[in-house]
Each structure stands twice: as structure tokens, then as C-alpha cells.
Design a protein around this nucleic acid. Structure first.
Lengths: 158, 158
DNA sequence: TTAAAGTTGTTCCAATTGGAACAATAATTA
DNA sequence: TAATTATTGTTCCAATTGGAACAACTTTAA
């Protein structure tokens, strides 16, 4: 007697769950975004907060650690740890702020820019792969909608 | 002399980042979804994997721990831990599978259903709040698009 | 039928995490 | 000015996490 193993279709939970949109955001993050960060860790040796520093400082020429914490909504101590590691690796430099001795301005170095470029290329390719399931116009639509949501989210208190 | 503290507009990083869509998914998850799970932990005493068990078993009458791991894309040991806690709390029951002694079928209890209902109501309210920034038709659109993405993601190997 | 490979659920462990407290400094209020 | 409150970056610590290994069992291949 041979028993047949039925492969369940797990995807229909998407339709019946009570908070479908938020659940899918969470699911997407779990299925796609965090594994990508894990790849970055394995391939480039940078954890999320460390890459976030490169990302932020590639887009703003000068930020404090606190700025980065706010931009990324990550705890300050995680950023603090990451800053030290990135300084050691030579990807960031830090200059004390003469106008406020509590804080220091962070900048990305040339090495940091090179590393940022490498990681970015990987992430861009991943994004293209993931969103390949959408047509060009769907993708544009999605981008507009999620921008709206992300902007709204950024106004929420932490 | 009084110095003016300029409040940076952090949101424009959304526009310039190299992988805008995936980044926003990640950002949304960080800004909205995970704080929500944190609220559930504080208010209901359940960690994410524990609530996931309730969620899955409220939608499928019988699942193995492995099924839940696959549905939620979480590691099996996290699920295993959560199962034990939920059994102790009386929210789940477990019956050995006579056709395969390795596994056991999980079911939600009445207490589990009650808890699931309470947590769900909270999550539904949160979702409504978060997505209130979209119009009805935008929201419908967003739902279609993210469903497509989530379904695609569910086909990716882990 | 036997051996090898795969699966399930579990335990162990090392690494990561973020909250809380802290010292140093700055801003605000009295 | 002095005292209070707030902010920045850091360290400490307890809890969470997920990878790896494992035992028990099942399936597949030889």
C-alpha cells in the first residue's frame, strides 16, 4: 500500500487572513527582504545596520549616528555598534562636531563608497528579480502606493 | 547668539535609494509590522511565532509544526518552542499522527480561538489605521499587487 | 531486504538583539 | 545664574534568535 503525500497549497492563507495587507507586507519582508540582508552578510560581511550606514551616508554627505537611527528606525545602540565596526573597516570616518560636543558627524570614505556600490548592485539585481512578476505599469503603480504608505509610516511616532 | 536646529526631512531617501521598492517593503515592515507584533507581545503575552500558530490553525483545522514553519517561513525550532508554550497555555492541542510517527497534528482549542479573536481584532484595527492613508480604490489596487508579489515570493525556494 | 537518504521535531549553543541605565553635554526654565 | 530637563553615544545585560547537530522515524534506491 502506498500513501500519497499531498502537497498543501499554503498560499490561500493570504486570502483568508484578517489583516491581509499588513500580513503580506510582513510576509514579503520575511520571504524576500531579510533573506537578502542575510545574503549581504554572507557575501559582503556586513550586517544590516552596517549596510544601512553605507546607504544613508551615500545619500546624505554628513549624518550623526542619531540621524541614521531615525532614518532607518533602528535602535541607537545597534547603530553605535555598527559605526565602530565601519570605522575599523575604514568605510566611515568620524569628525567631532565643534558646535555640539555630544555628537559627531559621520561621512563615508572612498572604500565605503566602493563597498556601497558593490552591495547596491547586488540589491538592485535582487529587486529586479523580485518585482519581475509585475508588469511595468503595475510596478509603477506599486511604487506610488508603497511610497505613500512609507511616507505615512515615517510620520508615525516611534 | 541662538543656533537653529534644522529638522531633516528623512523621507527623501525613499526616492534616491537604489532599490526603492524592496527598501520600502523593509521600511514598512520595520515601521509598522514589527512594532505591531511588539504590541501583541506586550498586550497579549504572545511572541510572533506563538501568534502565528494561532493564525495558521484558525485557518487550517489541522497542521503539523512543519506545515506552520513552511507557511510562515520561520525556522522550525522557533515553531517548536512556540508549540510547547501554546500547549502549556492551553491554546493548542496536539495529537500524534498514526500514519507517521515522526509528526503530530496540531489543532487550536476553544481558548485558542478566543485568544486569536482578541488579537485579530487588534490587528485588524491596526491595519485599518495604517492603510487609511490610501483611498478605497488605491487600497484595492495595492492589495492586488502585493498579493501577486506575496504569491510569487511563496514560490521561491527558502 | 538492506543500506542510504530524507524528514520531523527537539535540544544545544553561540551570536544578535534591543531595552535600560549611564556619563557627558546642551537646552530650557526658574 | 542655577537647576532641571533633554539629547547623544555608549556599555551592560537579559532575552531572543536561528543554525547545527541529533534521535526517531520514513522513504527511496540498490
Amino acid at each position: 500500500m502506498s500513501r500519497v503525500k499531498v502537497e498543501l497549497d499554503y498560499s490561500n492563507i493570504f486570502e483568508s487572513v484578517e489583516f491581509p495587507d499588513a500580513y503580506k507586507v510582513s510576509y514579503l519582508a520575511n520571504a524576500i527582504v531579510f533573506p537578502t540582508y542575510e545574503d549581504v552578510r554572507k557575501d559582503f560581511g556586513l550586517v544590516r545596520a552596517e549596510y544601512h550606514l553605507l546607504l544613508c551616508l551615500a545619500h546624505y554627505s554628513e549624518l550623526t549616528a542619531q540621524d541614521v537611527a531615525r532614518i532607518t528606525r533602528r535602535p541607537r545602540n545597534s547603530i553605535s555598534r555598527a559605526v565602530h565596526r565601519m570605522l575599523d573597516l575604514g568605510f566611515l570616518k568620524r569628525v567631532p562636531d565643534p558646535s555640539d560636543a555630544r555628537q559627531a558627524k559621520l561621512q563615508i570614505t572612498n572604500e565605503g563608497k566602493i563597498m556601497h556600490k558593490k552591495v547596491s548592485e547586488y540589491l538592485v539585481a535582487r529587486e529586479a528579480e523580485i518585482f519581475s512578476v509585475l508588469s511595468e505599469s503595475e510596478r509603477k503603480h506599486f511604487r506610488d502606493l508603497i511610497r505613500k504608505l512609507a511616507n505615512f509610516a515615517s510620520t508615525l511616532k516611534r
